[in-house]
Write a protein that binds this DNA or RNA. Sequence first.
DNA 1: CTGAAAGCGCTTACAG
DNA 2: CTGAAAGCGCTTACAG
Lengths: 347, 347
Amino acid sequence: MKRVTVKDLAKELDVSLGTINKALNNKPGLSDETRKRILKAADNLGYKVNRVAQSLARSTIRVGIIIPDVWLEYYTYLKEGINQELDRLSDFNIQGKYYTVSSLHSGKESITALNDCVRDGMDAVILCPLYHADYSSSLNDLYQKKIPVVVLGSDIREANKLCSVRVDAYKAGRLAAEFMGWISAKEKPIAVFIGNKDFSDHKDKVDGFLDESKKQPYGMVSIFETHDDPEIAHFMTNKLVRETSDLGGIYIATGNSISVCKYLSENNIKNVRIIVTDVFKEMIGYVKQNIIQGMIFQDQIAQGGVAVRVIYDKLVRNIVEKETIFIQPQIVLRNNFEGYFKYLKVE
Amino acid sequence: MKRVTVKDLAKELDVSLGTINKALNNKPGLSDETRKRILKAADNLGYKVNRVAQSLARSTIRVGIIIPDVWLEYYTYLKEGINQELDRLSDFNIQGKYYTVSSLHSGKESITALNDCVRDGMDAVILCPLYHADYSSSLNDLYQKKIPVVVLGSDIREANKLCSVRVDAYKAGRLAAEFMGWISAKEKPIAVFIGNKDFSDHKDKVDGFLDESKKQPYGMVSIFETHDDPEIAHFMTNKLVRETSDLGGIYIATGNSISVCKYLSENNIKNVRIIVTDVFKEMIGYVKQNIIQGMIFQDQIAQGGVAVRVIYDKLVRNIVEKETIFIQPQIVLRNNFEGYFKYLKVE
DNA sequence: CTGAAAGCGCTTACAG
DNA sequence: CTGAAAGCGCTTACAG
């Protein structure tokens, strides 16, 4: 019943607390034999560290967070998740420091931020990667210095990182296709809007959608790149609607669903089914107008929270998760989407 | 930057730590004036208690949990949620103790358990209420003794409790009706199976379904009580399918969806759309056979976790949440339901 | 390689 | 009504 403490171990083995501590935390200055004896006894007696006491005694853990301050409707939620978890862990003596990047495309800035994290003595880093940036040499550097890096939101493949946390994009695509099968009429053609086929997360969504589409009664599926630019998305919607009179639906797999909805609403087009990605406040009106039938929720809050927790687990408990942590996508409909705003607690 | 501690307050105001502690925790033995002076200074200096240090110093918080050990596919998940959260808080010096009840209907047993909690000196209680039990006098007793009670899973209305935590049943009903509108053919009649119209949670689901049905293209909706008995559910499905040749779909709003699916599967009935409640392992086969088209997930894990956290917040931080905490229902489809098992982490 | 002491920020008796 | 001391379970210098 009573908890086994380091004191109990020290008494049992007749060594000092310092020695116990070194053995438990794998620190140098201890004979191999003593270490083994202590670890074995700890195991036998069922010793479990009290993390509360531990965090009270040790120095503060500092986490650098590299995140763009543009495309706010997306990154705000990741940040919110990070902040919520940091707040929850704040009494555990862990602190975050933000390094913001001012563009989605300037990889240079975010590589500088990575180096700044080293300079500022961060114990770990959360990195929201930009497209077209080559992080490999900086990541190698951090790896050498034993500073774990968690890649958040999308992935940097084959790089030195602790792990990546992101939505299961393939599954998100499949889920969208399944729902599209219910809401769109038979045989009608379907369009998918993504940012860029070269980005693996985008590609995964397309692949998922296409694979599941084989089982669905709707017609041919075509893929369009919007480069995540609202004007392109608006233009493409216009073109598509004009040229494909019997268009069944559009799945907007990445950003810019708002400009698509705007076009449909302004032109009073009611018979094109729409599945969007993420749940943002700007969508409220379009859901109520029945322009949007479904939303694929990627739970950025959970993604951000998990990123922080992975770091905490690594640094404090030395627990390493698998290399990719997938957040499960959800489908959200008109009758429950408002709950997501309350849940998100973001204004 | 540096955290303000009780010591800082004591030094600043030139009083002892004990006095500071009494003021901060609203304990007796202190002049009103001193108390006010301390609280004001704490506020000014931005003092925030360190819960880690606090939990290290105070005695263990004990929570009694009254839960049936029948209908496992449901209660197991509530328990899992409770256990996960207790585990997360275990270093904060909080412990749970289970009081199991052997039937869903014997209110007597769970009232005895409530009294046992008092006898055993529990600091708080989580109660999963049974139908047809009159808890009011026991709950009054606990209320007198200042032992907070959280009602979990369903509600006990107009009783002395801290709060109740449950799914938003009305919204669950609406969500089911919305999805039924997509999957069921126009004009076809729909059936809703619930346990008992007299139970408020069941009634709420029916009300939600009926309200949303007004906007839906399917035909008349009829409600059937199964008394949460698998044999009755099986029998009713049989009768319904035979007598209503064009039946569009069934929404099983409470338990026993498995016996409905079993009937449909055995009799090779493919054209009745099915929405079930909860996501259980027994459903896997029926989802893959396309007997089940949608599942309304009530996130029992979250419900259990929130119940524990509400108690922790009340006892440790003296924060009181609103009287009803609603967990949001989710709709889950074939392509993402398997993620829920991993997420649930229950075997 | 090992040990004794101080300290993290609180709470809890107990003494005055 | 107020204060001084011990202790919760760890870690971190520092001394030997």
